[in-house]
Design a protein around this nucleic acid. Sequence first.
DNA 1: AGCATATTGTGAAATCTTTCACGAGCGCCG
DNA 2: CGGCGCTCGTGAAAGATTTCACAATATGCT
Lengths: 211, 211
Amino acid sequence: MLPRKIADSTVRRLAIYLRFLEEFEDQGRDTVSSEALAHRAGTTSAQVRKDLSFFGSFGKRGLGYDVHALGIRLREILGLGRRYRVLIVGAGRLAGALVQYAGFSARGFEVVAVVDRDPDKIGTAWGEIVIEGVAQLEEIVVREQVEIAILVTPADPAQGLVDRLVQAGVTAVLNFAPVQLHVPEGVDVKNVNLAVELETLSYALAHRVHA
Amino acid sequence: MLPRKIADSTVRRLAIYLRFLEEFEDQGRDTVSSEALAHRAGTTSAQVRKDLSFFGSFGKRGLGYDVHALGIRLREILGLGRRYRVLIVGAGRLAGALVQYAGFSARGFEVVAVVDRDPDKIGTAWGEIVIEGVAQLEEIVVREQVEIAILVTPADPAQGLVDRLVQAGVTAVLNFAPVQLHVPEGVDVKNVNLAVELETLSYALAHRVHA
DNA sequence: AGCATATTGTGAAATCTTTCACGAGCGCCG
DNA sequence: CGGCGCTCGTGAAAGATTTCACAATATGCT
C-alpha cells in the first residue's frame, strides 16, 4: 500500500471513484467496469485502470471490479479506515456550513472544536460544540488530539495561526484563507480558494470563441 | 489576448498572482519581481515568467513588473473587467456563506438571485435578496440575465437542474454538488468538492513516512 | 471443449507542464 | 559614457501525466 510517489490528480480521482462506488453499492450492483466508473467520474477507462494499477490489481478481466471489495480497498488507500479529529479555526458562516456538512462526518472527519477571535462568539454553542477563544488554540489541539485543522479566517491572521497550529502538533491543514501558507517539511496543506475558482470561470467566459 | 490553449493550472496561478499584486499595490509598491511574486504564490520565478509570457511581455528587464500595469493586464486576461450576474441554486448554509462572501462582489461577481426547493425558505430575505422557488429557474435566468450559476444542492437533483440552467442559457457553472455534471459543448463547469480535499489530506496522513 | 465476447493490466507513445539556463535589455553609478 | 548588477523572456531539456493499444484472462454459450 506504499508506492513511492502518487500524483495528486490520481489521489483526487480515487476519492471520486469511491463516491460512485458507494452509489453503485447502494444500488445493489456487484461489479462495475472501468468504463462505467470513468463515465460517472468524467474521465476515461484507461485512466481509471492506470490509477488503480498503482496500488495493485483489483479487477477480473472480462468482468470488471467487485464493487464492495474495491470500495474497501479504496478506503484503505485513502486512509479512511479511521476517524480524524478536526479543529475549525474561525467561526464565520463558511465554518458554520462546514460544521453542519454531513459529508464530513460520514467520511470519518469529526469536528471536535471551533475557535474564534471574536469575544461575542466565544461561549455560544453550535450544536454540540461550544466556540472557544483562539487563545486556547494550543491547549485545544493537545486536549482534543487534533490531527487536522481547517482554517477559515481572513488572509491576515492565517500564517500566524498556522505557525501556532504546527507548533502545537497539527500536521494537516485545509486552508480557505486566500494566502499561500509556509509550513515546515512534513506538514501538508491543501488550499481551497473560491475566488480563484470563479475567476477561472470568468477566464473561460472571456476567452470563449464568440460565434 | 487570445492564445490557443492555456493550461488550467496557469489560469489559476494568474488569479493568485493578481491577489498578491493587489496586496503590493495597497502597500504602495511600484514594481515587483517574478521572484517576489513566486515566493508569495508558492511557486518559482521561472513559472511566473512563463505563465505571463503566454500573454505577452509585461516586465522590464533588470527591474521587474509594474505593479499597477500588470494588475490591469491580469484583470483583463482573466475577464475581470466587467461584472458578472450570478444565480445561486440551493439556499443551504454554504449558499448563505457564499452570498455574504465579500470577496465575490469585490471581484465583480454579483449574486442577483437565490432559488430553493423548500417552500419554507421561499419568500424569506437574505439581505437584499429574496429567495425564490426553483420552479422560476428559467424565468429568473432570463429576467436577471444570469451568466454564471453556482450549484449548491445535494447530488441528486444537480444534473436535472444543470440541464434546465443550460437550456435557459447559462454557460458557466460552479458546482459544489458531489457529482460529475454532463453538459453540452460550450458550457463550462468547475467542480469544488470539499470531501475530496479532505480525503487527499487523509491520504497524505496515511502515507506519511512514520519515523 | 472451443469459440465469441468482454474487460483488465500495462508497457510504450504521445502529450502536457515545469524547470533550466542563458542571451538580452534596463537602470544606476562612477 | 561604459561597465556592472539585476531581472526578464524564452527555447530547449527534463519530468510528469494521460492516452493508446494489445496481450492476457475470465465468462458464457453452443
